[in-house]
């Protein structure tokens, strides 16, 4: 019987992929098997759609999660699943690439949509050129693999009375990569993906202190401050949690305001679903103006204070 396999490094993504897996299983008349990092999650996964749960053994303290690659690949080689969906976190992407290499099969990374065609092949969509284009692919080899970004699918809903098998997998051999230190990320209290209004800081802002201007604008509007990748990663003026782009956060606010943002496609891909876009940039040829409803061409140090003043006036603050 055709099988759809799911692996994700956390519970949330496993549930998301179970949702996708179950839809595909319906169309194929297939079973769904999910990997679990903890046996205690097996029952939950079965309730949410897994026909089988493959429980991975616990790892040693100094083994990174990616050590599971050999065990997973070996299982896949033996059981020959038809489709293998992997949660596309950083680790997930690495593991998917390595498993696909071991199985000599094709992998669609950053897969944002899945469906079956008339021939019951898996049709996968992904973005190209930083988000400028959407590519549709099928895989001619088996398993057909896709690495799916978190939050692409909603989590599956539980069903009562589902039954499934649970199988424990053999221990992982020693791996050449040893972990010497882990520092968990301190979560910023701000979730820029939930904000209704986001003021985004780009490289047009000359000094770190000038972000205060963007903050003031955000504050007047009751919004949050985000940024483009270079401001977070290279300049490190803002935490990575708030950088918006194809490899960062994707936001869908009511209003996006780009302050000194050039509008490279990688960034635009992260905010393209904004309802209204306002951009302020001194370069009239900046690509952001093609992605904006309202574009103010001029010096942000001139425009933003004026904007704040006018907004205070209009909103009577």
């Amino acid at each position: 019987m055709a099988e759809i396999w799911i692996f994700a490094e956390n519970r949330e993504q496993t549930l998301e992929l179970l949702n996708a897996g179950r839809s595909l299983a319906g169309g194929l008349g297939a079973k769904v098997a999910a990997f679990a990092l903890d046996g205690k999650l097996a029952e939950e996964y079965i309730n949410h759609g897994a026909d089988e749960v493959l429980v991975l053994p616990s790892l040693a303290e100094d083994q990174p999660l990616e050590s599971y690659v050999s065990v997973i690949a070996e299982e896949a080689r033996r059981e020959k699943p038809d489709i293998f969906l992997i949660g596309g976190t950083q680790r997930g992407k690495e593991m998917a690439a390595r498993i696909a290499a071991r199985l000599n099969t094709g992998l669609c990374s950053g897969c944002t949509a899945l469906r079956l065609d008339e021939k019951k092949q898996l049709v996968m969509e992904r973005m190209l050129f930083g988000g400028a284009a959407v590519q549709t692919v099928v895989c001619t080899t088996r398993p057909q693999m896709a690495a799916v970004p978190p939050r692409t699918f909603e989590q599956a809903s539980p069903a009562k009375g589902r039954e499934g098998k649970v199988r424990e997998l053999p221990p992982v051999p020693g791996t050449p990569v040893t972990v010497v230190k882990r520092t968990p990320k301190v979560r910023e209290s701000v979730d820029v993906t939930e904000a209704k209004i986001v003021v985004c800081v780009g490289r047009g802002v000359e000094k770190k202190e000038d972000i205060a201007l963007a903050r003031e604008l955000a504050q007047v509007l009751g919004g949050e401050v985000g940024c483009s990748r270079p401001v977070a990663e290279e300049l490190q003026w803002l935490p990575e949690d708030v950088y918006i782009g194809i490899s960062g956060k994707k936001i869908k606010p009511e209003l996006y305001i780009g302050v000194g943002v050039a509008g490279q496609i990688q960034h635009v891909t992260g905010m393209r679903d904004s309802k209204v876009v306002l951009a302020i940039n001194r370069d009239e040829n900046a690509p952001i103006f093609d992605a904006a409803d309202y574009g103010i061409v001029g010096d942000l140090y001139d425009a933003v204070p004026k904007l704040i003043k006018e907004l205070r006036n209009a909103l009577k603050i």
Binding site: N104, A133, V134, T136, V137, T140, R272, V277, G295
Partner: peptide
């Protein structure tokens, strides 16, 4: 040999007003 086959590539579209203003 390749394993994947591309069945289509289309530009991502975005409708925007593209109105311009000065300062």
């Amino acid at each position: 040999s390749p394993c994947l086959k591309t069945t289509g590539i289309l530009a991502a579209t975005m409708e925007r007003r593209r109105l311009r203003f000065g300062t």
